[in-house]
Design a protein around this nucleic acid. Structure first.
Lengths: 176, 176
DNA sequence: AACGATGACGTAACTTTGTTACGTGGCCCC
DNA sequence: GGGGCCACGTAACAAAGTTACGTCATCGTT
């Protein structure tokens, strides 16, 4: 039933957004009672944390191949693609879209693992650069900023223009 | 009473965070009944929009002088300073910290005005660069990404290290 | 100066949401 | 076969957003 609840929560989140991610909506989608969330996750926050962790696992799957190949530009494109394909989940992970949710130390460790994968990819792609951690963080922050602004509705509302601007940013990063 | 409600909402937001930004908490802080929010703002979302707009006005005041002087690095520092001094309001503006809130077109226009100020500052600081709008957006996105990651608790929890990393990012941006 | 209307504001109720106390039924171990 | 334990549901409670309605002051009109 635990997995079923996570699946139902992701379904509701994708279909109706973070504001509709209520205990009753989730359990109705899962076809069970509200108490399951408390026995398996200790409350709504615990279930949201499972969504948080699942998001980073999805990230790793989406971005990992490009990183393993040492192609940072492709990784950047895969990152934006995943975020735009899962906007509500992305906002749960980075935008505090669920008010009472604060990731636990274990959840932060899972996020750090994704970042370690990125650092390893940077070290592979730029073997003679300085501190790979610094470069990785800069790439992460820049890409995250572009994606976050685009998803917040700031900047243009033209998707093609946003993509073109993002491509220029990736090229600019490759130079630096 | 309208201004009093905005002041009370900002006080509650700063003191207890976005999750405690409830109609009852705000009106208790303002010393009035809950209905005032509906007569003056049409509901909680309208009041949150006032907070959103007030945030961009605060930004303009904080960053404007450096931009007018053509000092982009100082503007970047002022941006981070304002964000770290108003973390919960920043999350209301750029995250989804209030679930049902979506900025209206008028609110987006106010945000666009702040971006126009940034673009003018870039054009002043880099008169012989290409498209000032592109450069401004790149600066905005990068700085936003750094600040957002720092406020999300990703990356280091050491404030001095975060600041040093941010300074390196500003220097890297100045070169590019 | 008296009267009626308008608008600001509060009281109290309704709906929804997160949470929990408690009951029920099936399964395992002796 | 019986007792305990675990999974799960029912139903209630507290808090939050919202709204119907009543009250009082203020202002223009006669």
């Amino acid at each position: 039933m635990r997995d079923e609840l996570v699946r139902a929560a992701l379904t509701v989140l994708r279909r109706e957004g973070a504001a509709a991610l209520t205990v009753r909506n989730i359990t109705a989608e899962a076809g069970c009672s509200t108490t399951g969330i408390y026995t398996y996750f200790g409350g709504k926050s615990g279930l949201v944390e499972a969504i948080f962790v699942e998001g980073f696992e999805g990230f790793d799957e989406a971005v990992g191949p490009s990183l393993a190949a040492g192609d940072l530009a492709a990784a950047g494109r895969a990152y934006r693609r995943w975020a735009l394909d899962h906007p509500t989940q992305y906002m749960v992970m980075f935008g505090r879209a669920v008010p009472d949710f604060e990731p636990s130390p274990a959840a932060f460790e899972r996020a750090a693992a994704s970042f370690a994968q990125l650092t390893a990819g940077v070290a592979r792609a730029l073997p003679r650069a300085g501190d790979a951690g610094d470069h990785a963080y800069h790439l992460f922050a820049t890409v995250h900023g572009y994606v976050m602004l685009e998803m917040s509705g700031m900047g243009t509302h033209d998707d093609a223009e946003a993509e073109a601007r993002y491509e220029r940013a990736l090229r600019s990063l490759a130079v630096g």
